[in-house]
Computed example of a mutant assay.
Amino acid sequence: MRPPQPDARPVALTIAGSDSGGGAGIQADLSTFAAHDVFGTSAITAVTAQHTRGVESAHVLPREAVAAQIDAVVDDFAVGAAKTGMLAETAIVSLVADRAADATFPVVVDPVMVATSGDRLLDRDAEAAYEELLAEATVVTPNADEATVLTDVEITGVDRAVEAGRRLLETGVDAALVKGGHVPGETITDVLVADPDAVETHDATGTTGEGAGELVDGAIVATFEHERVDTEATHGSGCTLSAAIAARLARGDDLVDAVGGATDFVAEAIAHHYGVGQGPGAVNPQFDRRSVE
């Protein structure tokens, strides 16, 4: 009989909602962690009934249940990084902000605020609570609509994304990745704006090559450009991106490299999307395990 051979690997935590259709939320996060050879743990904030066509209903878990999940994971596992997704309501946003303040690992915040239709998913109080969370976070990853909610800056291109990123830094977050997928054009440009002192903490100032950050007017600015894939199968793309960043941080990547690698990963996950369901489909974090370097 062969002796046991434990597989030691980094650990990441996702704090998000469950997607019964499997394309987004906790399910997409855990699949993305696995694709990066990272052990995934979770704290579920809400149970949704959804599929590739949309959300049918959602049940938010009690604050105490979410807190118990987070505390159980952090108490037992050496968490290397965490990410947030759907936090559902003010009480849970505030809870996660409190736990992030005590965290000894990077926290990636995907501010799930605006639906694909453009409708807001949180009330004003919950949006204000996000400012508390951002003050404790390593990087926030809003799409163009969410960045506008958070900063009042309409994202029409790279310059406006940089402006929004700078405003987000004023909340105390170390870095902001303003995603360009909702901005029309043949290419998608994601813009990272980071506090130089915070980036030094994560050793990202040594990054070189395409996508490497440059110091511009007191902030590190890096852009990541990809050809737009001709598909509407982007369900789960935001979850997958933030999970990929967290996984790479858990593995020890510096901040700029983690973001650059994650944007490359999502571009491929969209190009090789799952053709499932009666809607457009969902991104595929398992497109090629060999793609993770």
Rank of each mutant, 00 (worst) to 15 (best):
D110N: 01
E146C: 06
G180W: 00
A103T: 08
G23T: 14
T189S: 03
V140L: 04
C239A: 08
P10A: 12
V162K: 05
A164E: 02
A147C: 12
H59I: 12
V292S: 02
R160T: 14
V229C: 03
A246V: 01
G261A: 10
G236T: 01
G209E: 09
V292K: 02
E227F: 01
A35G: 15
L249C: 06
G40L: 01
I245C: 06
P4M: 11
P111N: 12
L241R: 03
V292D: 01
A212Q: 12
G23Q: 10
I26W: 02
D75E: 13
G279Y: 04
Q286Y: 03
G218F: 11
G157M: 11
P62D: 11
T148C: 13
A34Y: 00
G236W: 00
T234A: 04
R166F: 04
E136D: 08
A16V: 11
S57Q: 06
V112N: 05
E132Y: 06
E214Q: 14
L215D: 14
P280V: 10
A164G: 05
P280K: 07
D110I: 00
G17H: 13
E163N: 05
A267K: 03
V79W: 04
P6S: 13
E132S: 15
A24L: 10
F265N: 02
R289G: 09
A144Y: 07
D71T: 09
G211P: 06
A88D: 11
D29G: 13
P196M: 09
R120G: 15
R248H: 11
G22L: 13
Q69L: 10
A194Y: 08
H51V: 05
G209A: 10
T189D: 02
G40K: 01
T223K: 02
Q27H: 03
V259F: 01
I220S: 06
